[in-house]
């Protein structure tokens, strides 16, 4: 029983984080059909902002808010620097410009801050522990689960109930037609990047909270998680991304628990192999995205 609770808590907290990471990536991909390689750097930006404001003496929540705002700005900047100039040219072009932009940001951090890890301030509650059904787990895990649930609920509300959300879903299906109804294209795109930045910023702080330091390459693992979760879930489906995140967390946690000690360091290789097998059976992913045509 204890083991089950431990497992469930681990999967839910990791899954929540993974789901948020994946969602931040899919929201841009769904509308623009373009992969944002600089997505991991949004987390890096949040982390370094925390480092840079750590001496200011402000309460942690305020610093965190500043960090998230910076991530949002960085998201919108990615659009202007890496996407807008080449969006019309080709899909490959955008992949490469966002990859180039990602390298640029990482090297900028390397150059202007430091290649060595920098400490990020964390609130005390992150290190506290709590007991559930006989299992001791960091409070941070519970916070992650709650944050994920809240954000996912807010996101679902945005997408289903607000005009902006409906417009974004429409733009994901048929961008030109949405414009022909008066939906301003640029606003939709900027909103997508801003939401992407918001999600990255928040999940980034939770993610960095596990280690407590930030390095230029910190965005790589979340980027990879977002990629794989998205591919599992079905490239353009928002629900799929969330589902993919939980599936990936389930696989990762399961492997963590079941691999023998000497194979544990190869966990990522095993995860990837399992993912490939899923893709062998279902190359389009678990969920179909928005339809791209009409009936007749």
């Amino acid at each position: 029983m204890r083991f089950t609770i431990q497992f469930v808590v681990d999967v839910l907290s990791l899954g929540g984080a993974y789901a948020l990471m994946a969602l931040g990536l899919v929201i841009v991909f769904g509308i623009l059909r373009l992969v944002n390689f600089a997505y991991g750097e949004l987390i890096m930006v949040a982390g370094y902002t925390m480092f840079l404001v750590s001496g200011s003496g402000l309460p942690w929540l305020v610093m965190a808010a500043v960090a998230v705002v910076m991530a949002i700005f960085a998201g919108i900047a990615t659009d202007y620097v890496a996407f807008r100039p080449v969006r019309a040219k080709s899909v490959t072009a955008v992949l490469i410009t966002s990859f180039a932009f990602s390298t640029l940001l990482q090297n900028a951090a390397l150059l202007f801050i430091s290649p060595r890890p920098r400490v990020v301030p964390l609130p005390e509650i992150f290190s506290e522990t709590v007991q559930i059904g006989g299992v001791i787990t960091p409070l941070r895990n519970i916070i992650t689960i709650i944050t994920a649930v809240v954000l996912l609920a807010l996101f679902a509300f945005l997408m289903r109930r607000t005009v902006l959300g409906i417009a974004m879903r429409a733009a994901a299906t048929n961008f030109t037609m949405a414009r022909m109804l008066g939906v301003p294209a640029n606003l939709i795109i900027s909103s997508a990047f801003a939401i992407s930045g918001l999600l990255a910023g928040i999940v980034g702080l939770l993610w960095i909270g596990r280690i407590g330091t930030v390095v230029p390459g910190i965005g790589l693992e979340p980027l990879l998680v977002a990629f794989i979760a998205t591919v599992i879930g079905g490239m353009r489906s928002l629900t799929g991304a969330v589902l993919g995140g939980f599936v990936l967390a389930f696989i990762d946690t399961g492997l963590n628990y079941s691999l023998p000690q000497e194979l544990l360091k190869f966990r990522d290789a095993f995860t990837f192999s399992l993912v490939i097998m899923i893709l062998l059976v279902r190359p389009e992913g678990l969920m179909r995205g928005p339809a791209s045509g009409q009936r007749t």
Partner: peptide, 19 residues
Amino acid sequence: PLMRLSDAAAVITSFGLLV
């Protein structure tokens, strides 16, 4: 298995393969 994926999925999976 990767060759049956859609273009974008293939690209990001290749990235995973590198890692």
